[in-house]
Every structure is written in C-alpha cells, then in structure tokens.
C-alpha cells in the first residue's frame, strides 16, 4: 500500500504501538556498531511486544536486547555480532540453549531476499552458499527456505533460490527525514533501502527533521521516498551507543558496559535492562543516564574529524 503524504511525525511510543505487534517480523536497520535503531528498539522492549522474528544482514546490539529481554522467538540473518566489541552474547546463549529459532544466511543472501521483496518478486536467485552447510544442513533440517535448481538456460549450472523477505515492519535510524517520511541516509546504507521497500510498515527515527522543500530541492539525495514510510520519530542520538555517520561516533564505553552485562546475563543483565530501558520513560531519559553532555560533545567532535 502506498502511504500518503500526511504528517507522520510521532513519538516512538506511538509509532511502536501502532506498527509493531506481537508475532511481527521486524526488519532491523543498521549494522554492527553503526546506525542501529536503538530508540525504537528500547520502546519495543518497554511495551513488551513479543514473539518477534528479527531479520537483517548483520544483527547487532538492538537484536541482542530484544533477545535478551525475551521478546524474540526467531532470527533470520547473516551474522550476530558487534565486531571488535564481541559477539551478541544473549543471542549466542539463546541459540546454545535452543530457546531461539535461527535461520542462517550469508549477508548477500539476506540482501537478495530483501531485494526480491522490494521488487515485488517471490524469490531471488543467488550463487552464494552453494556446496556449504548453510544450504545442506538447513535443507536436511527440513527448511523450506533454500531451493537449488538448474539454471533454465544452462542445465549444468546450479542456482540457489531464496524466498523474498518482507518484514511486517522495519525499524531504522537515519540522518534526516521530513514530516512526510522521505528518508535520507548518509554514508553506508546496509540492506536498508531494499528492506524498507519490502516492508508492510516502516518506522524511521532521525537525527534531524528537515523541510519537505529541502527534500524537493535535492531529490537525488532521497534514499527512500515517503510512499514507503509510516512513522517519523525525531530522535537525536537515536542510534546511541552505535554511531550515526556524520553526527557522532559509537561510544566504546557504553558498548563495553552493555557487553559486560550481556556476557554473563542473569542479574547483571536484568539490572542493565532495568536501569537503561524499563525505568526510562523515553530514550532521552536513557541518554541522560547513559552519557554526559561533555561526552556527547566528544563523540560529535570525533566524528567531525573523520569526515
């Protein structure tokens, strides 16, 4: 359904209430320690929306929090980790305890599934994963997600078919949006352009609300136009402690703090969720608890040096 050009600005609370439901398949924006949709993720945790299937290429801290809070039943992704900051510990533990269903793909395979969804196609061919256990063991397990066929034009060539991935809702954090929901992502875009266009609903949080006149002056800069977008949440620092290119760097201090709680789990982890999510009315309150204004200035200045 094409979304209208109405004013879509709302709070994270309202956006999550309207567009994220129990049992939803959620497309996760960002990658690793960059541009994860943390503000919207926190709101999903506060509202306790459960039985979620989380999909993306690299799933990172936002996914780990939803798994750690007991709200996810399944992931479909290429990786779970935060690169140099370690693995996604709650995810790893849930897989090892067999309390989470997982479907494994390569990054390109997931990006291809979103591409199929974004083009209104039922599947996408891929030449990745051939000859590996990503295919063989998951097919042996009865997964219906991977079909190997012969290229119809060259019967000697095996090709993998992957089903389109069409999230019920995608949550992403962008640098800019206008009130209509036109999105501008600067820097790397991960799988988000395809994922967003494949989704039934889209919530975007943004660092900066710009005017629609400004969007129309530079239409070539629009990453995703408003016809795909349902809610705009204006939330500076909305990807903290992951970075937003052009605005601020990731915060190693808070990332390590999270990982130090996520690794052991148990009381330490519950305490993290309580202090930084449940007890906070909104993401601004989280930011007030998690990072000083002096530190915010440092992370902004440090990003400016890299541009």
């Amino acid at each position: 359904m094409t979304r209208k050009a109405s004013n879509k600005v709302m709070t994270a609370q309202e956006a999550v209430k309207r567009f994220v439901h129990d049992g939803a398949t959620v497309g996760m924006g960002g990658q690793s320690i960059g541009r994860c949709a943390m503000a919207v993720t926190h709101e999903i945790v506060r509202q306790g929306i459960k039985d979620l299937t989380l999909v993306g290429c690299n799933l990172s801290m936002s996914m780990d929090i939803l798994v750690g809070a007991g709200l996810a039943k399944r992931t479909e992704c290429g990786t779970g980790n935060l690169e140099r900051f370690g693995t996604t510990f709650r995810w790893r533990k849930a897989i090892e305890d067999r309390t989470l269903e997982v479907e494994d793909y390569s990054h390109l395979a997931m990006a291809s599934r979103f591409l199929a969804g974004s083009l209104g196609l039922p599947f996408m061919p891929s030449k990745s994963m051939l000859g590996t256990d990503i295919l063989n063991k998951q097919i042996a397990n009865g997964s219906d997600a991977f079909r190997v066929i012969d290229n119809p034009w060259d019967l000697d060539e095996p090709v993998v078919l992957l089903p389109a991935c069409k999230p019920d809702v995608s949550i992403i954090h962008a640098q800019k949006a206008d009130q209509m929901g036109n999105i501008i992502i600067e820097g790397f875009t991960t799988q988000e352009p395809e994922m967003v266009k494949a989704s039934s609903s889209v919530i975007v949080s943004c660092e900066e609300l710009i005017s629609s006149d400004e969007v129309r002056r530079h239409p070539d800069r629009t990453t995703v136009p408003y016809i795909f977008v349902d809610a705009v949440v204006v939330q500076p620092w909305g990807s903290f402690p992951t970075s937003t290119y052009g605005h601020y760097e990731h915060d190693p201090e808070h990332l390590r703090r999270y990982q130090a709680c996520a690794r052991p789990g148990g009381e330490a982890y519950e305490e993290y969720l309580r202090e930084f999510i449940y007890e906070c009315e909104n993401f601004d309150e989280h930011l007030d608890r998690a990072i000083s204004s002096a530190r915010r200035e440092e992370l902004r200045a440090s990003m400016q040096k890299l541009l």
Binding site: Q31, G34, R35, F188
Partner: peptide
C-alpha cells in the same frame, strides 16, 4: 573497529550498500 566505522569511509568514491 568496524566496517561501519567512518574511518573506512573517508574520501571513498562512493558510499553504497551491502
């Protein structure tokens, strides 16, 4: 420290997608 780090993006000829 990451493939999303701005340090791997400086003066690129293009920033694209996965």
């Amino acid at each position: 420290s990451s493939v999303t780090d701005a340090r791997v993006m400086y003066r690129a000829v293009r920033h694209g997608s996965l």
